[in-house]
Amino acid sequence: MTDKQVGQRVAAFTPGGGLAEVALANAEVTVSVPDGIPLETAASAPLVVSTAVLLLTERARIRLGETVLMHSASGGLGSVVSQLAATLGSGRRIGTVGRAGKIADGLAAGWDDVFARDDDLAEAVHKVAPGGVDVILDPTGTGLLDLDLSLAAPGGRVVLFGNAAGGTPAPLPQAGRLIGGNVGIIGFSMSRLTASNPRAAAEALTNGFELIARGSVRPDITVVESLGSVAPVHDLLAGGLGRGKYVVQVGT
């Protein structure tokens, strides 16, 4: 049973095949889009705003004044995480990007400091966060985990929520390193949460819409005019040249 009606504006987590004129989704993870929120903004919310909400509030459990660092900070998720962290009362917000040419995009996404992931990264972060970083959000897999742990403050949390670098994730560090540093490593997968706890995913999406409606977060969106225009956007993203979140307009 569902309270949704034919013709109602909704957004949903799809199990796959969402880039289409017609898509199927479980009613449990389908949420009404509030009046006043454009559909292109709503389309970005399931995997961008909801993920930001869950990363910061449920997995990292950010507290007032804590510093935040996020890798791949210039993308659509990075922009929303930066805005949401500020809304939640975070301290300094630090972003990293794959190369120096993306620093301007990271700053435009709202981060206080943005650094390229090069040999000088650790030194640069320590200069702006000499006591270490409380919350580190890493979508790259485990390739940067040693760096993450070296940057973490006592009591810090490293949240691994993707494997953008590809390949097989490396083994986690020995427990002694975590115990000795009072540091936690936490995993997160939106797709697994949607499958195992759809109510939590839907609640995060509802909360995300409330944040958008209040103006607390504003996803950085580029509308792709048609399905036929998607391939060049994929090439752009594969080359690391994208900025923000891309949504595709289908039909009329």
Rank of each mutant, 00 (worst) to 15 (best):
N207K: 15
A60T: 01
V247C: 07
T87I: 03
G155R: 10
L137N: 01
P130E: 13
A153H: 02
D120Y: 07
I185D: 00
L160D: 04
R199H: 10
D35A: 15
G7H: 10
R9G: 06
V6H: 06
H71S: 12
A116W: 07
D105W: 07
S74Q: 08
G65T: 03
L178S: 00
S150H: 13
V159E: 06
V217G: 04
E203T: 12
N182E: 08
A152M: 08
G101Y: 13
T142I: 09
A124F: 06
A201Y: 01
G156D: 01
Q8V: 07
H234V: 15
V114C: 08
A42C: 04
P219E: 08
T222P: 02
P130Y: 15
A73D: 00
V183F: 02
V223M: 12
S82Y: 07
N207H: 12
V125R: 10
E66C: 13
D112F: 06
V33D: 03
V49E: 00
D113T: 07
V158N: 04
G78K: 02
G208E: 01
R93K: 13
L160F: 10
L160E: 02
V33Y: 04
P171R: 11
S150M: 11
A153C: 04
A109P: 05
I103V: 15
F115Q: 04
L55P: 00
T142L: 11
P15R: 14
G91V: 14
F13M: 08
G131V: 07
V159G: 03
G110I: 00
P198H: 08
A27C: 01
A85V: 11
T67R: 09
S90G: 13
N26A: 14
L64P: 08
T2V: 10
E210N: 14
G91A: 14
A45S: 15
A195D: 11
D220T: 10
A152W: 01
M70E: 15
E225T: 12
G181V: 05
L121Y: 09
T168E: 13
A85P: 04
A45C: 10
R117E: 15
A124M: 11
G228M: 14
P173I: 02
D235R: 15
T57W: 02
G101T: 15
G89W: 09
T168F: 05
S82Q: 02
L47K: 09
T96P: 00
V133G: 04
L147I: 07
D112T: 09
R192P: 00
D112V: 08
V22Q: 05
P198Q: 11
T168Q: 12
T96S: 13
S79G: 14
T14K: 05
S50V: 01
P38N: 04
L144W: 06
A42S: 05
V217P: 03
G78S: 03
L77P: 00
A23R: 02
V183A: 10
A20K: 07
I94D: 03
V217R: 00
S50I: 02
W111D: 06
D220P: 00
G36F: 06
R243M: 08
D3K: 09
D134V: 08
K4I: 07
G242P: 07
G184A: 15
G167P: 07
A100S: 12
L69W: 10
G167M: 12
S50A: 11
P169I: 11
G228L: 12
T30S: 08
